[in-house]
Simulated assay, not measured.
Amino acid sequence: MTVMRKPTLIKQQIAENSVTLWLQVDGEIEDFKGHFPQFPLLPGVTQIDWAVYYAQQLFDSPKSFQGMEVIKFQEPILKDALVKLALTWHADKQKLHFNYTSEQGDESHTHSSGRILLG
């Protein structure tokens, strides 16, 4: 049996040092298991892992995680959510900026954002 760890990539938009990914956060993702059984939500560490993973795939950023400068979790990401992950890579500073958002009707919701140091 295959363990599902990454979301389904629906769409991507790539620019010089930024990318926007539309991700389906499938309810079968392993990281939901045991993370609040009565109210499953996507762990913050998983959100950071995905940001680093996609940055390494799309920007050829360094592979070594050096730490976090800023991190803010505002609204949980629930099973089967459709989220937008915006990444910006600043190669000169070795910093990755990320932002998870979603749309519900006419409203935009920010789930999390931060800056990751890679080296």
Rank of each mutant, 00 (worst) to 15 (best):
T2C: 11
R5E: 15
K6H: 13
L9R: 09
K11Y: 07
I14D: 05
E16F: 03
N17F: 04
N17A: 03
S18D: 11
S18R: 08
V19M: 01
T20K: 04
W22D: 15
W22L: 01
Q24W: 00
V25M: 12
V25C: 10
D31S: 13
F32K: 08
Q38Y: 03
G44I: 01
V45Y: 08
Q47D: 11
D49F: 02
V52S: 05
Y53H: 15
Y54F: 00
Y54W: 04
Q57V: 03
L58E: 02
L58K: 01
F59S: 01
P62S: 07
S64K: 14
S64L: 14
F65E: 11
Q66R: 12
G67W: 02
K72D: 13
F73E: 10
Q74K: 14
Q74G: 13
I77K: 04
I77W: 02
I77G: 03
D80G: 03
L82M: 06
L82S: 13
K84A: 09
L85W: 01
T88L: 06
A91M: 02
D92P: 05
D92K: 08
H97E: 15
F98D: 08
Y100E: 11
T101I: 10
S102C: 01
G105H: 02
G105R: 02
G105K: 03
D106Q: 11
H109T: 10
S113A: 10
R115M: 10
L118R: 05
G119D: 15
